[in-house]
């Protein structure tokens, strides 16, 4: 079956956001703590635009986040913590260094 394709090889603007690839191989994700003062700096350092201010709160759009951890490193108030995804054995039994 021959695919019906546009004459000029092209893609609809913004269409990647609908099916982001990165979230599938994410190993950790940010959780924003109460120390956040909504300075918005992290929003400019996220490669995916996964950190957004909505309704006066900072939200992590997990569908976009691929877990690089830049936001947690860059936050001046250390208000962002990276939390491991469930990743098999290491998810069930957190690695030793993560034990408090």
């Amino acid at each position: 079956m021959i695919k019906d394709l546009p004459v000029v090889p092209s893609a609809k603007a913004g269409s990647m956001a609908a099916a982001p690839a990165g979230a599938a191989w994410r190993e950790q994700h940010p959780v924003i703590g109460t120390a956040c003062n909504q300075c918005l700096e992290c929003t400019l350092f996220c490669p995916e635009g996964a950190l957004v201010q909505t309704g006066g709160n900072m939200t992590v759009m997990l569908s976009l986040c691929n877990g690089c951890g830049i936001c947690a490193v860059e936050c001046r108030l250390q208000a962002i913590a990276m939390v491991r995804e469930y990743t098999g054995v290491s998810g069930v039994f957190p690695l030793r260094e993560e034990k408090v």
Binding site: M16, A18, P20, G22, P47, E48, C68
Partner: peptide
């Protein structure tokens, strides 16, 4: 940005 296929970070 959103959904781009870049490597982490």
């Amino acid at each position: 940005g959103p959904g781009n296929a870049g490597c982490r970070g």
